[in-house]
Simulated scan of single mutants.
Amino acid sequence: MLNFQSPGFLRRVLLADAISGLAMGLMLVAGADLLAPLLGLSAVLLREAGFVLFPVAAFIGYAGLRKELSRRMVWAVIAVNALWVMDSFVLLFSGWVTPTLLGQVFVAGQAVVVAVFAELEFFGVRRVRLAMPA
């Protein structure tokens, strides 16, 4: 059973978010040339998205590893995750790219994973708000 009221829960979610962001960034940077034809997305787009994830993952990891969790930092993580999700769907529906079916599933799937992290972080920060400094 998930204990949303535990600062440990929020810390674990933040660290899982950071690790998954780093892994995705590494995959996109290292595998851009292999993924591009499969996903129907340019290698440049994939590589740049991967490079963007490195500082984001570092920030999320820093937020989760601090001795005391900061509400402001967690809210910033939630905002960045929400922006990533919105940008993912803008990419899919803007007509700027024409991803393959696998590419559409990939972009939507990673957006759903990021949205789940944001939701868990939202529940966590709301539940432990009295115990956390601003």
Rank of each mutant, 00 (worst) to 15 (best):
R71A: 02
V80D: 01
P55T: 03
Y62E: 02
W84C: 12
P55V: 03
A76C: 10
I60T: 14
K67A: 08
R66G: 00
A58H: 01
V56R: 11
A63Y: 02
V56S: 12
W84P: 11
V77W: 08
A76Q: 09
V77P: 13
W75Q: 13
R66W: 03
A82I: 02
A63H: 00
M73T: 01
S70C: 06
W84S: 14
A82D: 07
K67Y: 08
L69N: 12
A79S: 10
L65Q: 10
L83H: 06
Y62K: 07
A58C: 06
G61Q: 06
A58V: 00
P55A: 13
F59G: 14
A63L: 03
A76D: 10
G64Q: 07
E68T: 11
V77Y: 04
W75E: 07
A79P: 09
Y62F: 14
V80T: 12
W84M: 11
M73A: 13
A76G: 13
R72D: 14
I78F: 05
R72H: 13
M73Q: 08
W75S: 08
N81M: 03
E68W: 02
N81G: 05
V77C: 15
E68R: 10
R72Y: 11
G61M: 00
R66Q: 09
R72G: 15
V80M: 12
L65W: 02
R72Q: 15
E68D: 05
L83K: 05
G64M: 02
I60A: 13
V56A: 15
M73Y: 07
V74E: 09
L69C: 13
G64P: 05
I78D: 04
V77Q: 07
A82G: 14
A58E: 01
S70E: 04
V74L: 04
V80F: 01
G61N: 04
W84D: 09
A58D: 04
V56K: 08
A82E: 02
I60C: 03
F59W: 07
L65K: 09
A57E: 04
